[in-house]
């Protein structure tokens, strides 16, 4: 269990609080590329040398990190941070036949580069870990934060998830058949009925603690599993709800990670069958696209929906309710990595 006190996100869409919530940006060249802010808090000399995932990660985190109330540690989830720099360095190796190479790309290619840079910029000497477990990188970061807070209940942590569409990684995933082959508008993503997803990128950052004052959301539980068996995933969700949903409460919003990929759709539909009739179903991947740590943006949306209305185009199923207090997130990455997260607002 943990409390979320502050949030910030960078994605292809604008921050809901600031924008016309019914407006959505569409993919360009089959990619939902994040619109980056001005990054005023990153020193220009450092900013120039940063790859996009590093910029997005650091840029989304710094507005939340106050000098007067520093966090005690930095816990990051990123499947592919540093991948772009990694292949840039690899291309140098091949191009210059292992000659005199510049180490800049190499140093920025390590998976922990975002958490490392944040530690450096904010002079934070606390706990600093990066989880890189593909579609469960962010979820393991969440679990890590929960465990750190169990042990150190007076601490607070910066928790985040970030990944970019690097050109090289895009090529590899495209060859592997991860993405949709055809051009699809995100406005009709869920009707596509074809294999593959629409790729996106972004960062979502949270300041979390074990203290119940001034919080946006309470993350009550998280569970993860690796499986290709729909029934097992369904059983897992049943167990998760039995164990973690307080008696007398109900899920009033199911935030689904459905992504328009017909290979993973059956998992989402199977989970939906377990929901009560008065549970609204809301989707966000037409806004964000999909990527290994898209669930971090999912959590960011969940925090938004505890505070304000849900845009019409995000509903898969509407109910009579207009405000929500218990949100269940389910995410499925490539039909193998599954996560359930329970978020609530107590009032």
């Amino acid at each position: 269990m943990l409390y979320i006190h502050k949030t910030f996100s960078i994605s292809v869409q604008q921050n809901l609080l600031q924008a016309n919530i019914e407006l959505i940006n569409e993919p360009v060249n089959k990619k939902l590329q994040a619109i980056e802010p001005a990054y005023e808090k990153i020193p220009p000399g450092i900013l120039r040398r940063m790859g996009k995932s590093i910029r997005m990660g650091v840029g989304a985190a710094l507005p939340l990190m106050s000098e007067t109330d520093p966090v005690n540690g930095i816990i990051m989830g990123s499947a592919n941070a540093g991948m772009e720099e990694c292949v840039k360095f690899l291309n140098q190796i091949v191009q210059y036949e292992e000659g005199q190479l510049t180490p800049g790309n190499f140093v920025q290619s390590t998976g922990n580069v975002i958490a490392g840079q944040l530690g450096l910029i904010t002079r934070n000497k606390g706990y600093n870990v990066t989880h890189v477990h593909a579609g469960l990188a962010f979820e393991n970061a969440v679990l890590d934060a929960i465990m750190q807070l169990n042990t150190n209940p007076s601490n607070s942590y910066l928790l985040g998830g970030v990944d970019e569409i690097s050109s090289f990684h895009y090529n590899i995933e495209a060859l592997a058949g991860t993405y949709k082959k055809e051009e699809v508008s995100n406005k009709v993503l869920y009707e596509a009925g074809s294999p593959g997803y629409l790729v996106g990128e972004g960062a979502a950052m949270f300041v979390v603690s074990a203290e119940a004052n001034n919080f946006i959301a309470k993350l009550t539980a998280i569970a993860t599993i690796h499986s290709t068996d729909i029934e097992l995933v369904q059983a897992q969700l049943k167990m998760f709800l039995q164990k973690n949903l307080e008696a007398g409460t109900a899920i009033d919003l199911f935030l689904s990670g459905e992504n328009g990929d017909n290979r993973t759709l059956p998992f989402y539909t199977a989970c939906e069958t377990l929901l009560a009739d008065d549970t609204a179903i809301v989707r966000y991947k037409h806004m964000t696209g999909d990527f290994p740590t898209a669930s971090a943006l999912g959590l960011w949306y969940a925090c938004e929906f505890l505070q304000q209305q849900v845009p019409q185009h995000m509903f898969k199923k509407k109910t009579s309710k207009t405000s929500y207090r218990n949100i269940l997130l389910y995410n499925n990455f490539k039909g193998l990595q599954h996560s359930f997260i329970l978020v609530s607002k107590a009032w």
């Binding site: 390590t110 998976g111 958490a115 469960l136 393991n140 993860t224 599993i225 499986s227």
Partner: peptide, 23 residues
């Protein structure tokens, strides 16, 4: 992650699986 995804499948692990990279 590919290393542990392979091991997860090979040993049919159903508990928490994670990959950490802090250099």
């Amino acid at each position: 992650a590919s290393v542990n995804l392979y091991l997860q499948k090979h040993f049919k692990i159903t508990g928490v699986v994670n990959t950490i990279n802090t250099a």
